[in-house]
Design a protein around this nucleic acid. Structure first.
Length: 591
RNA sequence: GGCCCGGUAGUUCAGAUGGUUAGAACGCUAGCCUGUCACGCUAGAGGCCGAGGGUUCGAGUCCCUUCCAGGUCGCCA
């Protein structure tokens, strides 16, 4: 770090440096002018140190120090001294020393900033994004960026040591018919034609396997033109990995060890190996989601068989029209929620299309429930037994189409854990979700779509029913989940062009359309394709987990707002007439 | 596209029922102050109440439209 403008960095100085003459450069955190004595807290990336300007030490520096304001950029030279007893500040690491300034150079002045550089300063997010360079001066933000750097370094080292090669793939590429909406880029040279920005380098990494590169990875930007969420940005980063001559076990083995290494090196946290496996079906049945948070209980139980013929029409109708009735037992919550709060939870599940939320509050010698009058004694006892109901418990029941029941109860579980603070941020429960369905039925398009992507291989024993019972086919796909967050996912790919064509057929792609969209891949597959598969992790989400952040914008240096704009650069902006002309684009007037 | 919440000083916010000159804290400016560290004291400046329209004698406040920011459903792995 030593340069002509500094001998040390602020935060790294300590008692060991006492008596040394040092040169420091940084920003003014704060100035305290006592009249005959001026204190300045000087900040750089490494930390903060107090500088004293004293007329008796150097009058010229002292006089100049009157001009100092917050966020001025300074170089100071002085001697590291031990602070006297009673003058120490235990709230900063360098609080037992200070620099007696012998020389001051003001490298630059600063306007009064709209953001005070302090981790605890409360600010509207739009101000933070507009003045992102100031927001990024905060130690907390700098720490996140440094952890992000450290994580990618560990990943690169880990993969390099195991023979992986980082290869760049195009950003200007071809649109993909399945999956998210593509960002489009017009071609000037071929007017009317457009590139798409990649949603992921999926096809290229498979082609690289055909090329014999064997083990590929890339830490790469991906683009999806969809709406934002607290954990979603239109451009984000993937750790993209592909390997040849492997099966699912090989992929999970090598990748879970990479995650273990990241957590060990960054957090000193030991993830027990091997990481637990759970099938998709089990995850849905027990947690109502394919990314369960297994740090707490409240698991789903199936009541369908008990209430099939019950008097309560809401239940029996749901069952008879092909749905199900399921419940969770909020252990020990019978006294924790008021009637009003329970009603609010009923409103909560309506967000997920549930029509209502039934509940049974088990008292010491009675039962309180709005639905008990519709249920027989036997049905009630059976429900309580299957739910392992004890006095003090509160059982929540949802009856509907099974997917809605899963959604509503799965989300209710999370809501309850939030309200009851059941989870500990320093605990990490990893698991692999396996045996995903290969396909899901798209009600709008009235056809099957690939749950992962169209190149995912079915499980061998299910290939025979691919065309007769598509919804029963399981995929060689796997997701890595931690604390209810999907960190990454991947699959073994189809490497046989016959099976691939069958797959397109099931997806309702004509042979012509498949060749128009993916012809280059199908053609490549005819020239000797090794069995291959891979995985991709969301780097941003990984960093969120590592830094205990719940906002993806905080782990990206220059993120976008919900409106897809960058408040700092004011992108996107209206294109100039000449540029549009050049591109052959006519912009429609909007009302 | 739907739903919810917000927009008042540089910043964070307060402004019941519409009613004189729109407040506070922090920050900022000036002066005083030699051991402060959220320094202290004194004085001061600072507002298109997001924008447009409407109702009204009168709108920060009520109504409509719109823009911006956040959360969420749809969408998206």
């Amino acid at each position: 770090m030593k340069t002509s403008k500094r001998s040390h960095t602020c935060g790294t100085l300590g008692l060991k440096n006492i008596g040394e003459s040092v040169k420091l450069s940084g920003w003014v955190q704060r100035r305290r002018d006592l009249g005959g004595l001026i204190f300045v807290n000087l900040r750089d990336r490494s930390g903060i140190i107090q500088v004293v300007f004293d007329r008796d030490i150097n009058e010229e520096a002292f006089n100049l120090a009157h001009e100092i304001r917050n966020e001025f950029v300074l170089t100071i030279r002085g001697v590291v001294t031990h602070r006297e007893k009673g003058q120490c500040n235990d709230s900063i690491p360098t609080g037992h020393i200070e620099i007696k300034a012998e020389h001051l150079e003001i490298l630059n002045t600063a306007k009064t900033p709209p953001i005070y550089i302090d981790d605890d300063d409360v600010l509207d997010e739009s101000i933070r994004l507009k003045y992102r360079y100031l927001d990024l001066r905060k130690p907390k933000m700098q720490n996140i960026l440094m952890i992000r750097h450290k994580a990618t370094k560990i990943i690169r080292d880990y993969l390099d040591q195991r023979g992986f090669v980082e290869i760049e793939t195009p950003i200007l590429t071809k649109p993909t018919p399945e999956g998210a909406r593509d960002f489009m880029v017009p071609s000037r040279v071929q007017k009317g034609s457009f590139f798409a920005l990649p949603q992921s380098p999926q096809l290229f990494k498979q082609i690289l396997m055909v090329s014999g590169m064997d083990r590929y990875y890339q830490i790469v930007k991906c683009f999806r033109d969809e709406d934002l969420r607290a954990d979603r940005q239109p451009e984000f980063t993937q750790i993209d990995i592909e390997m040849s001559f492997i099966n699912e076990e090989d992929i999970m083995y090598i990748n879970e060890r990479m995650i273990v290494e990241i957590f060990k090196k960054i957090k000193g946290y030991d993830i027990p190996l091997p990481i637990e496996r759970m099938t998709y079906k089990e995850a849905m049945d027990r947690f109502g989601t394919d990314k369960p948070d297994t740090r707490f209980g409240f698991e789903l139980k199936d009541l369908t068989n008990i209430v099939t013929n019950c008097e309560f029409n809401v239940f029996s109708n749901a069952v008879n029209s092909g749905g199900s009735v399921r419940a969770i037992n909020a252990k020990g919550c019978g006294e924790k929620f008021s009637r009003r709060e329970i009603d609010a939870l009923g409103e909560f599940v309506k967000q997920y299309k549930a029509k209502g939320l039934a509940w049974i509050n088990i008292k010491d010698d009675s039962i309180k429930s709005p639905i008990s009058k519709f249920l027989s004694e036997k049905e009630l006892t059976d429900i309580i037994e299957i739910m392992d109901g004890q006095p003090g418990d509160l059982i929540f029941i949802v009856a509907d189409k099974t997917q809605i029941v899963y959604d509503a109860l799965g989300q209710l579980r999370l809501e309850l854990s939030k309200k009851l603070q059941l989870t500990n941020n320093n605990e990490y429960k990893f698991l692999w979700i396996t045996e995903f369905p290969l396909l899901e039925f798209d009600n709008e398009e009235k056809r099957y779509t690939a749950m992962h992507h169209p190149f995912t291989s079915p499980i061998d024993e299910d290939i025979s029913i691919l065309e007769s019972h598509p919804d029963g086919v399981r995929a060689k796909a796997y997701d890595l989940v931690v604390n209810g967050v999907e960190l990454g996912g991947g699959s073994i790919r189809i490497h046989n062009s016959e099976l691939q064509e069958k797959m397109f057929n099931v997806l309702g792609f004509s042979r012509d359309k498949a060749w128009e969209k993916f012809g280059f891949l199908l053609e490549a597959f005819k020239y000797g394709t090794p069995p291959h598969g891979g995985i991709a992790f969301g780097l941003d989400r990984l960093i969120m987990i590592l830094t205990n952040t719940d906002n993806i914008k905080d782990v990206i240096a220059f993120p976008k707002t919900q409106n897809h704009s960058c408040l700092m650069t004011e992108a996107p902006s209206i294109a100039e007439e000449e540029r549009l002309e050049e591109l052959g684009i006519l912009v429609k007037e909007t009302e």
